[in-house]
Design a protein around this nucleic acid. Structure first.
Length: 508
RNA sequence: CCCCCUGUAGCUCAACCGGUCAGAGCAGAGGACUCAUAAUCCUUUGGUUGCGGGUUCAAGUCCCGCCGGGGGGACCA
């Protein structure tokens, strides 16, 4: 069985999760589920990135330890994943003991490769802002004190020791990577952006800090902790047992896709492959950056008060409606907008009317006219064959779209089949056949249910709960629900439970 | 200041190397049907393809300028 390794970015838990996190988790979960149903041995990793100065500061403000803050907030992110029905295999925390080991091992390998050296970092430092300022961002006031222009805080010339990663040495290899593997970064806009950034030249990267201690200690120099991204990115290796579990690493590495937000594309498409090359590890197959979500087109911000709590959205619309809306409405890679109206429209038009009602109108005819037994189909007409062929071909249309994270296109293809099926049903008029040709009615109903079975199997990754309910109503056994069952046909003679609407219309 | 992307019906998007009346879904309008969650089916309204020039037999599709949106760089972390 081939392996498939997918990850989300790990969230920085110095606050509570918002809809953007939910968006990423839902999408990653759908991809993971799709691959699992398609016969892959999937490993799906997500978690939290808990180190760094901000965590330490936030904790200090609240009078608790960074660890306590991390424990509290990481729990919130994990709760979100669970509320979203996410099928992650591990929720990793960068404070996990095995992550320290993995990070230090990666560091050692980069050091052994000669890519890490001790240097120094200097500039006008403001203790109050805990930040460096450039010369022209400071000015000397009337009393002869140099201050930062933007904050007015006093600054002093400071030199700080720091370890550096020889990123500058990787420019050519990175450019070659982008050129030879155009699929390494998606969508295409990101690749162009990243490639032009790298082409401009790369500076060595500061990768340690001695001014705070909330982080992974640098091996061999306990005065330093690793700075942000070395530690954070390594989680993808920790999550598969690096470095000790060699079998697991061999199986799952390189990762098939890292799902991230566009704001951190550079770290994943430049720093991360460079680190891996340095350490002698393969680079991931693909990094896919999604866009941001806007509330009715407006950026979310606390001051505007339009920040939406993802838990509330789940409560309001239902989990599958939210999942479906986000994945069907927005092109996964571009920014997207959501609104109450848009969510309700998707819910009612796509789920309740086109899909749910199709199941209901066909199933209820089977219940009322055939005693709830799946009929034996007679000879197929050209219309029957055509529709079945369309449904049989759906998986081949969805696979490549899902592989490029084009969920919205995969779903569009599925809904095209549903639309065709509604037209077929209306054209065949089984309610007329009931009186004129009952056998033919049975065939029409059989074909309809069979197409519903195929489509429902394929949309399980997006709306797992609802799909399960529909498969129950179609009498599809639990062991007949992965994609290997697609070519099988619905078993005639199966007794079906009483049908009930799975997607009630949203009224409000 | 520089670079890249983008601007197509009310909304969300399509249109391969420039070439039949610029397409689809949703929303809207009219009709049909009654199996179904007033659902579904059929028909249909609606676009000077941001604006202004230019190249070409022919331009959403190429070039220049302007306006609007997004992203990146530079400067800052």
């Amino acid at each position: 069985m081939s392996a498939f390794y997918i990850t989300t970015a790990i969230a920085y838990p110095n606050g509570t999760p918002h809809i953007g996190h939910a968006y990423e988790y839902i999408a990653a979960d759908a991809f993971a589920r799709f691959k699992r149903l398609d016969g892959y041995d999937v490993r799906f990793l997500t978690g939290t990135d808990e180190h760094g100065l901000k965590m330490q500061q936030t904790a200090q403000k609240e009078g608790i330890t960074p660890r306590e803050l991390a424990d509290r907030n990481a729990a919130g992110f994990k709760r979100l994943q669970d509320a979203l029905g996410s099928s992650y295999d591990r929720f990793i925390r960068t404070t996990d003991a095995d992550h320290y080991e993995a990070s230090q091992e990666l560091w050692r390998r980069m050091a052994d490769a000669g890519d890490i050296y001790l240097g120094s970092y200097s500039g006008w430092y403001s203790v109050r802002d805990e930040a460096y300022f450039a010369e022209d961002e400071t000015e000397v006031d009337a009393e002869g004190v140099r201050r930062a222009v933007s904050t007015g805080a006093e600054v002093t010339w400071t030199e700080e020791e720091s370890y550096f990663f020889r990123l500058s040495a990787y420019q050519d290899r990175l450019l070659k990577l982008y050129e030879e593997h155009p699929g390494f970064i998606g969508p295409d806009v990101r690749r162009n952006e990243i490639a032009s950034f790298v082409a401009q030249g790369l500076k060595d990267l500061s990768i340690s800090r001695a001014t705070f201690d909330w982080g992974v200690p640098v091996p061999g120099d306990e005065r330093h902790v690793m700075y942000v991204w070395v530690d954070a990115l390594t989680n993808y290796l920790t999550g598969i047992g690096f470095p000790h579990d060699e079998a697991s690493v061999a199986k799952y590495w390189p990762a098939d896709v890292h799902i991230i937000g566009k704001d951190i594309a550079r770290f994943h498409a430049v720093y991360w492959p460079a680190f891996l090359m340095s350490a002698g590890l393969d680079v991931p197959t693909r990094v896919h950056a999604h866009g941001f979500l806007f509330n009715k087109g407006a950026k979310m911000s606390k001051s505007v008060g339009n920040v939406v709590d993802p838990f509330e959205l789940v409560d309001e619309y239902g989990l599958d409606t939210l999942r479906f809306f986000l994945l069907r409405e927005i092109s996964y890679g571009q920014d997207g907008s959501y609104s109450h109206e848009a969510i309700v429209t998707r819910r009612n038009a796509d789920l309740a009317n086109e899909y749910g009602n199709l199941a209901q109108r066909s199933l209820s005819m089977v219940a009322k006219n055939l005693g709830g037994i799946v009929p034996e189909p007679g000879a197929y007409t050209a219309e029957d064959e055509e529709l079945l062929a369309l449904a049989d071909g759906l998986v081949d249309r969805m696979r490549p779209e899902m592989d490029r994270q084009n969920v919205h296109l995969a779903l569009e293809a599925a809904w095209q089949v549903l639309s065709r099926t509604n037209r077929y049903f209306s054209a065949q008029e089984p309610w007329v056949l009931r009186k004129t040709d009952p056998a033919r009615m049975g065939t029409v109903l059989y074909v309809t249910l069979e197409v519903l079975r195929i489509v429902t199997l394929l949309v399980q990754p997006v709306i797992p709960g609802s799909a399960a309910a529909i498969l129950d109503q179609l009498g599809v056994p639990g062991d007949g629900r992965d994609f290997s069952a697609l070519p099988e046909r619905l078993a005639a003679g199966t007794r079906l439970p009483a049908p009930a609407p799975v997607f009630p219309k949203y009224e409000a």
